[in-house]
Amino acid sequence: MDDRQLAEELRLIIGGLVRTVRAADTMSPGESAVLGYLDRGGPLTTAEIAQQRGVTHQSAAKTVKDLLARNFVRAEAHPGDGRKFLLHPTQAGRDRLAEERRRRADWLGAAINTVLDADERRTLEAALPLLSRLSAHLHGT
């Protein structure tokens, strides 16, 4: 298999895995993505969230509005620009995100234990640093 075929197979398989895992989510993809960005990267504006997610400002604003209504995020005046707000996850938002992450990990972990034998699990574990390096390279870090 040449590099292009390997890349295409990897893209298809990882994409399918991600879609399958997300299908088990109980939160909308937008809500979990926004909470994830805020949890990992700290406070962001709605415009920054839209840029990171690759969606329109209106789409990000709707998701933020829903998260505010559910008390999963809070808005604070931007210290450098009074027209903007910085969004922070609330404890309820962090708890909800942690619950969603646990659910995903439990579901995927059960599948790993059902489908893969011990040697295959070790192979999968050994591949994680490689996938991490690829991801970091593609993200420019």
Rank of each mutant, 00 (worst) to 15 (best):
R83P: 00
D106V: 13
F72M: 15
H57A: 04
R19E: 05
V21I: 15
L67R: 02
L68G: 02
T114V: 05
Q51W: 02
H137E: 15
R53N: 03
T26E: 14
D3I: 12
E8K: 14
A23P: 00
L124R: 01
A33P: 01
R101C: 04
D106Q: 13
R122G: 00
N71M: 07
T45S: 12
T114Y: 06
L35T: 04
E31D: 13
V55I: 15
G93V: 04
L97T: 04
R19H: 07
K62P: 00
E76A: 14
Q5V: 13
R4F: 03
L130C: 07
L67C: 07
L10T: 12
S28E: 13
V115Q: 00
D117K: 03
D3L: 13
F72H: 15
K62Y: 15
T56Y: 07
L116S: 04
R96V: 11
A77T: 11
L68V: 06
R122S: 14
Q58Y: 08
R96T: 08
T123P: 01
H139G: 08
L134K: 03
L108Y: 08
R11P: 00
T90F: 09
G36M: 03
A126H: 14
L130S: 11
G42D: 01
R104H: 10
G82N: 12
R74T: 14
G36Q: 03
P89G: 06
T90N: 06
T26M: 13
S32T: 15
S135K: 07
